[in-house]
Design a protein around this nucleic acid. Structure first.
Lengths: 262, 262
DNA sequence: TGGCACCATTTGTTGGGACAACTTCGAGAG
DNA sequence: CTCTCGAAGTTGTCCCAACAAATGGTGCCA
C-alpha cells in the first residue's frame, strides 16, 4: 500500500481492500480488465499482474469469456478423532465419511476406486516399518461431496497383511477393511496423524478441480496394532473447502461453530 | 504436457520434471531468464510466466539480481496432542514450544509479545460463547526457530476470566496462564482443534518471511473447562516448514519419521 | 417454438521493448 | 592490502500490440 510499492501491488491492495470491506462480496463480478486498465490508467499487462496476485491468494477466480469473480468459501468439516470411533463400528472408512457428510446435510460419494501394488518410498517404508522398495498394497479413492471433488485418499497396507486379510481385490472388502483385519488379529489400538500443507501438484489440482491459489491439506494417518503399523492413509484435501477437527478430552455436548476462524 | 498446452505451461512442466527427477536439486541455480529464453526460443515474458507457475507451486524462489534457485524444505514438527500434556506441567505454552524445539535440536525463541483488547468477531464469539463485539483479551506472540520466523500465535480469553486471573498485563503471567487460571477454578479438561489451510495475507507473508507460493496452516485450539470455553488459540504456521502431529491411542514407543509423506 | 449460426465481450497466450533495482565481483584508488 | 566504485549480469516493473479461445446473447431460419 505504500507509495513506493509497484503499481500492480497497489492495484491488488486496492481490490483486496474492496473485498475485505465488503464493497465487493463473494460471487460479485470484478470490473473487466479493460475497465480496470482505464480506471487505473495502466497497461492491461499490469492489470493482469494485479489480478494474478489476488488469484494466487485464492481471493478471486477468472474464467475465459466470463470474467473475474470474488471467490466464496464453503467449509466442510472432517472430524478426525471422532471419525476414528465411527470407523470401528462402521463397515469401512468410507461409511464414516458418508455419515459425516450426511450429518452436515451433504451428499457424499466416492469414485475411481483403484487397487494397485506400489513399491514403498522411503517415507512410506519408515512409517510402515518395511524396507524401502518393498511391495505395498494401495487402495485409492476420490471422495465427492454434492458432486464436487473433495479429497483424494490413498491407503497403503503391508503386503503380508493384505494377503492374509483379502485386500488384494479391486473391489470393496465385504464387511470393511478394518473388520477384516481385526478378524485376523490385527486390531487397531491407536494412530498418529500428521498434517501439513503445500501447493497442489498439477494432477492434484486437476482431480480436485482447484483453481489457482488454492493449497491442499495433506493428512497422513498411520494406524497401529499393539505390535506393528497396520495401515497408512494419505488424504489430500482441497484446502479451500475443508477443515480437519480433533475433539479431545472429556468434552460434553460442545459443538464447534460452522464458520472458520481467520 | 500435452502438445496443446500453452508454451509457458510446457516450459514449467519441463523444469518441474527436472526438479522432480533430481536433474535440478534443492539449492541449485536455474538457468537465467535470458538463457531459458534462448533455450526454448520464446519471449522473456513467456519464460517469466513459466517461472511464475513454479514459484506459485512453491518449487523455486527468485531474488532480484541473484537468480532463481530450487527451494529446499526443512520440516519441523509440532506435537499437538502431546504438547497439551506438557502444557499442564510446564509454566506456560511457550515452555512447551521450547521443549519441543529443544528435542528436535533447534533453538526456539519468541518475540513481539503484545496484549491487546479486541472485539469478538462472529467466529470468535461463537467459539468462546460470548456475544459478538464483546471485549476479548488477546495475547499474541511470534515464534522463531533458529532465528527464522516459525509461527504467529494469538490467544483470546474472555474478559471476566482475564480480569479474575490477572491476564491484563503486557508481560508474562508469573507461573503461566494455565496455572493462573487453574488456581481460580478454571481447569482445562479438553479442547477442540481445527486445522485449515489458505494462502497468507500480505502482512502474514511479511511477518513469516514467506516466499511466493507458500500457504499457511491455520490451527485453532479452543480449550474448555467443565463449564465453558476458557481460551482460543489461533496459530498461523508457515506451511513449508511445519507439520502438526497427533498421537492418539495406546501407542508404545512408536515415533514418526522425520521426512514428510508426499 | 426450437435450434443453430454468428457476433460482441472477456480472459488467455505470446511477442516485442525499455528501464529500474539489486547482487556480485573485479579494477583501481588510497 | 583494503576499501570503494562501477560495470556486468540478473530479476523486477511496465508499456504496447495482436491474436486465440471461451462465453453469452442475438437473431435468423426452419
Amino acid at each position: 500500500m505504500a507509495q513506493s510499492d509497484p503499481l500492480y501491488q497497489r492495484i491488488a491492495s486496492d481490490l483486496r481492500d474492496q473485498i475485505r470491506t465488503g464493497a465487493l462480496k463473494a460471487g460479485d463480478r470484478l470490473p473487466t480488465e479493460v475497465e480496470l486498465r482505464e480506471q487505473y490508467d495502466v497497461s492491461r499487462n499490469t492489470v493482469r499482474l494485479a489480478l494474478g496476485v489476488l488469484q494466487n491468494e485464492g481471493m478471486i477466480s477468472s474464467t475465459q469469456g466470463k470474467g473475474t469473480v470474488v471467490r466464496e468459501q464453503v467449509m466442510l468439516t472432517y472430524h478426525a478423532a471422532w471419525a476414528e470411533s465411527r470407523d470401528r463400528n462402521a463397515s469401512d472408512q468410507t461409511d464414516a465419511f458418508y455419515a459425516e457428510m450426511r450429518d452436515q446435510g451433504r451428499k457424499g460419494e466416492y469414485r475411481d476406486f483403484e487397487m494397485r501394488i506400489k513399491p514403498a518410498t522411503p517415507e512410506l517404508a519408515a512409517r510402515l516399518h518395511v524396507e524401502e522398495g518393498d511391495s505395498l498394497v494401495s487402495r485409492a479413492i476420490s471422495r465427492y461431496v454434492d458432486g464436487q471433488p473433495f479429497s483424494l485418499q490413498d491407503s497403503y497396507y503391508p503386503m503380508d497383511i493384505s494377503q492374509e486379510c483379502g485386500l488384494l481385490t479391486p473391489h470393496d472388502v465385504p464387511g470393511g477393511v478394518i473388520r477384516a483385519m481385526a478378524a485376523k488379529g490385527h486390531t487397531e489400538i491407536g494412530y498418529v496423524d500428521e498434517l501439513t500443507t503445500r501447493m497442489p501438484r498439477p494432477d492434484e489440482a486437476r482431480k480436485l478441480g482447484l483453481s489457482q491459489g488454492t493449497p491442499v491439506l495433506v493428512y497422513v494417518r498411520t494406524t497401529y496394532s499393539d505390535k506393528r503399523p497396520l495401515r497408512l492413509t494419505l488424504t489430500i484435501f482441497a484446502g479451500d473447502r475443508n477443515r480437519v477437527v480433533y475433539e479431545l478430552g472429556e468434552l460434553g455436548a460442545y459443538t464447534a461453530g460452522n464458520g472458520g476462524v481467520s
